[in-house]
């Protein structure tokens, strides 16, 4: 048998393998994005950037609670102007490696999303990822746009009008019917869907002081504990839409990546596993994925995609 082909095409953009660095993990500088690309990622996503600089929440912001992480970083970012500089630098470093760049954005208003998208597009990333699903700024921003099909659609439409780049819309698992949200953003021109953002919000209380540990009190839950929910979300979304899906949530191994692809994902996001296995996780999962395909006789990723949907 010939060696399996791990490459995938996401909206016409080639990824050497389906593994994508998820937003908010090590995506704060051009050098770190380059490092993750050298570590074997098929594509890398920058930390979500908004219109103006934000310092985020005070510490503690990220904890290992025993079965995953919980975080309330609070969308710290340098603002769109500085982000364009970082993304340009990142793009230049990634180009020779053949690793595409996903630029993640957020805003407080529908109009704001369009403006940040237009600004960030100046750096010519390969994709724009629209983060409408951060659970950690509810106190300031109100309910995430991903919680309501009409809001999610309106944001998608605003970004669609602003840029011609492929748009990925990132959904929240914290809704009763994620498929309905997926349909709504597809109808407004989303080219791909990323699912899921963190679960919750959750809370961890220190029993000695009786106080929630995160300074924000609540935070988004990620890592191995949320994988079954992420897999179910991707399964539901892939029944509802035709656009490709980046399946994210609790992926730790090649086996987990296969599971996500069988649920219907075209690409697979990796976030918290960087904590458990280091930045080396990308090459490790890639080789585990390759090994699985060799053992089971899969020639390419598409042969596994959506297998769970069969009779």
């Amino acid at each position: 048998m010939t060696a399996p082909d791990l490459s995938v095409s996401l909206c016409g953009v080639r990824l050497a393998n389906p593994l994508v660095l998820a937003s908010g993990i090590l995506g704060t500088s051009a050098e770190l994005l380059e490092r993750v690309a050298r570590c074997g990622a098929g594509a890398v996503t920058s930390k979500s950037c908004g219109p103006t600089p934000r310092t985020g929440h005070p510490n503690p912001t990220v904890l290992d609670w025993g079965h995953g992480l919980i975080n309330a970083v609070g969308l710290s970012n340098p603002g769109a102007d500085e982000e364009v500089r970082i993304l340009r630098d990142a793009k230049a470093r990634l180009a020779p490696l053949g690793v595409p760049l996903v630029a993640s954005i957020f805003a407080e208003t529908v109009q704001g999303f369009g403006e940040v998208a237009r600004k960030v597009a100046e750096a010519a990333p390969d994709f724009i990822e629209v983060n409408i699903s951060c659970p950690n700024v509810e106190a300031e921003f109100g309910r995430p746009f991903a919680a309501d099909a009409r809001d999610a659609a309106a944001v998608t439409a605003a970004v669609r009008r602003a840029v011609s780049l492929p748009i990925i819309v990132k959904l929240s698992p914290n809704v009763p019917d994620i498929a309905a949200i997926a349909r709504a953003v597809e109808a407004e021109g989303a080219d791909a869907i990323a699912a899921i953002n963190t679960l919750g919000p959750g809370m961890v209380i220190d029993t000695d002081s009786g106080k929630p540990i995160l300074a924000n009190r609540t935070g988004g839950v990620s890592g191995p504990a949320i994988r079954p929910i992420a897999v179910r979300c991707v399964y539901d979304v892939s029944r509802a839409v035709r656009v490709p899906i980046i399946g994210i949530g609790g992926i730790m191994s090649g086996r987990d990546a296969v599971e996500m692809i069988m649920a219907g994902a075209t690409a697979v996001g990796i976030g918290s596993a960087v904590y458990y296995r280091g930045p080396e996780v990308f090459a490790a999962v890639r080789e585990e994925l390759r090994g699985f395909m060799e053992t089971h006789g899969y020639a390419d990723i598409s042969q596994m995609r959506g297998l769970a949907h069969g009779a």
Partner: peptide, 21 residues
Amino acid sequence: MMKCGLGVCGSCDHHGLLVCR
């Protein structure tokens, strides 16, 4: 400057090196 101390948030970046990890 450190936020997570766990090698995930990127706030302690020094030219691609993570000071915390």
